[in-house]
Amino acid sequence: MNGFLQAFVNGLTLGAQYALMALGFSLIFGILGVMNFAHGAFYALGGYVAYLVDKTLGLPYALAVVAAVLMTAALGYVFELVVIERRIDDHLATIVLTLGLSLVVGASLLAIFGPRSVDFPAPLTGTLRAGGVYIPTARLMIIVVSAAAIAGVYLLLYRTRLGNALRALADDRTIALAQGIRPKVLFPLAFGLATGLAGLTGALVTPIFSLAPFVGEHVLMISFLAVILGGLGSLPGAVIASILVGLVESFVGFYIGGSWAPLMLFTAVLVLLVVRPTGLFGAKAAHV
């Protein structure tokens, strides 16, 4: 029983982390139609910015997280505006462009921080004891902040003028343009918002897992899974599927062990992509 709850909390932590990543990834795909292969790189970048601000400059961790979000959001904004925007309708080209960015970011981190993982200890070290289960405070914080961020994105998209415009753009770009909504202004914003979410994830999560230049690759991979399971471009789908993936990874890892969890997940996704490319949760593919 104890093990079960432990696995559940761990799964939820993983799920929350994947959800933040998948949310941003899905946002970009849903609104811009771009598959962002650099999403993992933004995760790593967020981790390193937080590390730099927290450890090297000695500023409070909360400030480090904010700095990570701002940096990754700004880089995403500029990259969309200057690079992606010019090939926005060519799906294969945008894949290669984001791959290029992921190489550049990864290599830059490698050049600056070296290949070894850096020591970035979790800012919260205590544990919370509830009914015989020990929950590390750091994990709880990840779950809470992730939930808050997801709620924030939901409110932004469904309760504000900007969100309304973004969803209109995702639905029909031409007709949105005829409402005075300018994709050239909003696409970089959406991209920056999503990469900021990846940066936030990195800043939150890398202290309790690990921080090395290419840590993003694994998280990107898992986000792919969640996004495909949830239906490409569907935000609620991405969040629900992420939490499912986190729980499955944790439970299968706990009870069966080793590489079986990812293998089962990936195989399931492979089958799902072929049989039902719109994902588990219906036909809302490619729309927010």
Binding site: G100, V104, A107, A111
Partner: peptide
Amino acid sequence: SQAEYSQLLLGATLILVVLYAK
């Protein structure tokens, strides 16, 4: 000895090729 620079060059070239030399 410095894999990061080959990656950096590769990534940048990739972006430039897609933008300017399809």
